[in-house]
Design a protein around this nucleic acid. Structure first.
Lengths: 345, 345
DNA sequence: TTGTACGCGTTATCAT
DNA sequence: ATGATAACGCGTACAA
């Protein structure tokens, strides 16, 4: 089962095998694959024929090693079971796929330590670019990334000290704006429901707290949170404890995401609380259900797919040595007002 | 910026650099990383120190090339924006991550041609195993996979002719069972709403059609479909056209998935149709919202995460040369009856 | 347009 | 337990 110096059979067809079959040199085969325009029509056809007949598939590891170009972009996200990230991913895959890059995707489970481990994994694949979530890296991971000298985009939030490039929006401002919206609608006792408590949720809470405190409307028991992953079920449960902790004296709930908001909304319905008459509910992320649920759910919309696209484009620009006018991009957000927070009607 | 024969600096630290720093041979460094037990305590410490100080990260491409072990498992799914697949993915990542394998994930966009392209991409990375969705490969892709001689699992549905291993459930039986359930509840004119029309949805329709035809209850205009991706919005739209096409004479709707079902449910509410009194709605996949929406939504539950786990375990078993008792595994399904199809109460 | 020589960073093999 | 040597399969640089 060994393979002799020149292309004897071992199951794996190599470039040398193709070269032998086509009666050309290996480098010509290489060129047919990578720079067909530099090869004569005749040679190209011969080689292509051999490739097809032998079912040759290039060995990307050998190619990467020889050229130090892996064609791989590493991506690290905190969770695979959250639309928020898969939407961004779709944008990344779209652009990277079209540009001929493969995406190596890792899941950090919201843990900086896991992230560090995963970044090592990614780096060992000699990625040409990296897209990671947020700015909550361990010091070691931060060092690793700074030393790596490849284009890097941190996504999902605006960072004070980006390692390289950064694209996202201000969760702090968004949180404060939601409060402003609710106040403008006449709601006063505004509760907050949050789960998983990642850095972005914490920023939303800060925005919420600051906005309320500024009007002297903040109280600690207005906040109900859980370290567990968000879910509709958890939203319902947190809503119940929020109401209990305030003896029902709550007239609006700001939920850290739409799953929690749906849970709160469904639970409120079961408790026969009229929305938005007795109680307003505002979500975050604007998932599709927000538009169609009854009553429709006010939520904060962000161009996640577009953020993925833009992040990928930034990487590609950097790889093509094109100038990048702005290393930090604010995607902004829009509060989509719907029935669930529409008091006067 | 070149690198001389022995470890002069070029930005990339190699195994040779580490060996030099630790005053051992390169192979010893390699052993410290891959088979630490075969190295003396003293050498191990020296080498580990050098690795840490230099920030050495192994080059996986060189390793793969030399050892013909890439540590990569290729996974192909039709869509990143569908919980159904990301749930499975979570299971795959869980097991593969724990076993030290990297996952290379590609998105086929429900297209066999795209899938063939992506499979080529995957194969060029010398994956040690492959997990792909369904059995709708192009002939060329099928050939590629059969020739590849690496463990392969086809997931999501039960296939008549699996290439290698197969894990899923019968969408045909599930479709028929849903009809049986609705009939048992006393519903007679049962419509079907479907979108995207991939092979699995088609099987569900076949099951539905056969079950109805057997009782002479089938009519062509009971089916409303669209080639577009499923969404809540589309569910609402298809529901409206289904009702229009039947002049409202529909007393149950079987939706190909829960997004469509939620769309139908929300739209029915807006049309003031009482559920389940006037109309039953049954979904498919049992996403979390099905349990909590009001009224709660009957749906077909499948252990997707478990399917991902099992698929990954099959691959690993095969890689470890362990015997595999059953190359085809039926995950089964359960109809979760909830309020939306509960006529007598 | 085509080919030659060599190196990419690591591991397998065989010695010591 | 440790090391020398030769691949692994391909691309770069230069030559023809």
């Amino acid at each position: 089962m060994k393979k002799s110096k020149k292309g004897s059979y071992d199951g794996k067809i190599t470039l040398v095998d193709v070269a032998l079959a086509a009666a050309v040199s290996p480098i010509t085969v290489s060129r047919v694959i990578n720079q067909p325009e530099k090869v004569s029509e005749a040679a190209r056809l011969k080689v292509q024929k051999a490739i097809d007949e032998l079912g040759y598939i290039p060995n990307q590891h050998a190619s990467s090693l020889a050229s130090s170009r892996s064609g791989v972009i590493g991506v690290a996200i905190p969770s695979l079971s959250n639309v928020v990230f898969t939407d961004v991913l779709r944008g990344i895959y779209k652009v990277m796929g079209a540009a001929g890059y493969k995406v190596l995707l890792v899941d950090t489970h919201y843990s900086p330590l896991e992230e560090e481990k995963m970044v090592r994994t990614l780096l060992s694949q000699s990625p040409e670019g990296l897209i990671i979530t947020g700015g909550d890296q361990t010091p070691a991971c931060d060092q690793l990334l700074r030393k790596s000298r490849i284009p890097l985009v941190q996504i999902m939030e605006l960072l004070p000290n980006p390692i390289d490039m950064n694209i996202g929006f201000s969760h702090l401002l968004a949180g404060a704006d939601v409060v402003a919206h609710l106040l403008a609608q006449g709601y006063q006792r505004i509760g907050f429901i949050g789960a998983r408590m990642d850095p972005r949720v914490q920023q939303r809470i800060r925005g919420y707290t600051q906005a309320l405190a500024k009007r002297d409307l903040f109280e600690a028991n207005l906040i109900a949170t859980s370290p567990e992953p968000s879910s509709i079920a958890l939203g319902g449960a947190l809503f119940k404890s929020l109401m209990a902790a305030n003896e029902g004296r709550i007239d609006a709930v700001f939920c850290a995401n739409d799953d929690l908001a749906l849970g709160a909304l469904f639970e409120a319905q079961r408790m026969n609380i009229a929305i938005p008459k007795q109680l307003a509910i505002c979500g975050f992320n604007d998932i599709e259900a927000a538009t169609y649920v009854n009553p429709s759910l006010t939520s904060v919309a962000v161009g996640r797919y577009e953020m993925g696209v833009k992040a990928a484009e930034l990487i590609i620009q950097a790889l093509n040595q094109q100038p990048i006018d702005n290393k930090q991009i604010d995607m902004g957000y829009v509060i989509k007002q719907r029935d669930s927070t529409h008091r006067q009607q």
